[in-house]
């Protein structure tokens, strides 16, 4: 009995020891398997030198190929960029052209040096020395004044804040009111003109001009030159639509 337990004890020790050895062996083995499985470098390291050389030259060829491709793409991108820049330039040019045209058409608010003429219609008042009555300011008066101002180099003109554009109309309705751009206006008529103040002034004070004639006819006229001050002229309020023009 005693010997039997002794033997089994020895066997137990042996079993445990061998078990531990097996454990250690398998542990290390599987760890190694895992490492090898996860590392691709193994294949490179186990390659022969000649294989490595061919592989290297392959990769070099691929590299040059890719570099060429890269350069190609880069140059194409640069091309596109310059193209888009020129597009932008064109767009800017068109934009400025559009702005200029709008300005010329009178579709934008403008400001600048010029003169302001205020005409007080004294129509109906008695003239001194029994000369009769002062006649009302007619549409022709205004048309002539505007014509004179444009002749003097006016760039933008408005009457009572009604911008004079190519399609502006100035006429009398019903013998009572004057109408500019289909808007009825009343005295005092404020004519604003942007341009060289000196020229505009001289045109306004011209002895043969309509303003002088009106003043002589009994209307009170005030001419204000704004040499260092900017006057503002509003844009044309209507819409310019063409139906028959192509």
């Amino acid at each position: 009995m005693k010997t039997k337990t002794k033997i089994s004890k020895a066997k137990l020790v042996m079993s445990i020891t061998i078990g531990i050895a097996c454990f250690a062996l398998m542990l290390v083995m599987f760890m190694q398997f895992k490492v090898v499985k996860q590392t691709d470098i193994t294949s490179i390291e186990t390659m022969r030198e000649s294989d490595l050389r061919t592989e290297l030259s392959d990769w070099k060829a691929k590299y040059t190929e890719l570099t060429e491709l890269y350069d190609d793409v880069t140059s194409r991108i640069a091309e596109y960029q310059s193209e888009s820049e020129t597009d932008e330039e064109t767009a800017q040019l068109l934009q400025s052209e559009l702005a200029e045209l709008n300005e010329a058409l009178g579709l934008t608010d403008v400001e600048g040096e010029g003169i302001t003429i205020t005409i007080q219609d004294n129509g109906g008042q008695e003239l001194p020395d029994d000369m009769g009555y002062v006649s009302n300011i007619s549409e022709t008066d205004l048309l002539v004044i505007i014509n004179e101002l444009f002749d003097a180099g006016a760039e933008a003109i408005s009457i009572n804040d009604n911008r004079i554009v190519a399609m502006s109309d100035i006429f009398r309705i019903g013998g009572a009111y004057l109408q500019v751009n289909s808007e009825p206006i009343r005295s005092p008529y404020v004519i604003k003109a942007i341009g060289d103040p000196t020229y505009l002034e001289s045109a306004a004070y011209n002895k043969d001009g309509r303003l002088t004639a009106l003043q002589e006819a009994g209307h009170s006229i005030q001419i204000e030159s704004s040499k260092n001050r900017k006057i503002q002229i509003q844009k044309y309020n209507g819409t310019i639509s063409t139906k028959y023009m192509n």
């Binding site: 042996m14 078990g19 454990f23 398998m26 760890m31 470098i41």
Partner: peptide, 28 residues
């Protein structure tokens, strides 16, 4: 008994080895 010890050791070692963190390639 020895057979059991061997199998047990192998299985436990394999399981732990599979789940162990990957050691750096330099030490493999």
């Amino acid at each position: 008994m020895i057979v059991i010890a061997i199998i047990l050791g192998c299985v436990i070692g394999a399981v732990i080895g599979i789940n162990a963190p990957v050691i750096p390639y330099t030490y493999s």
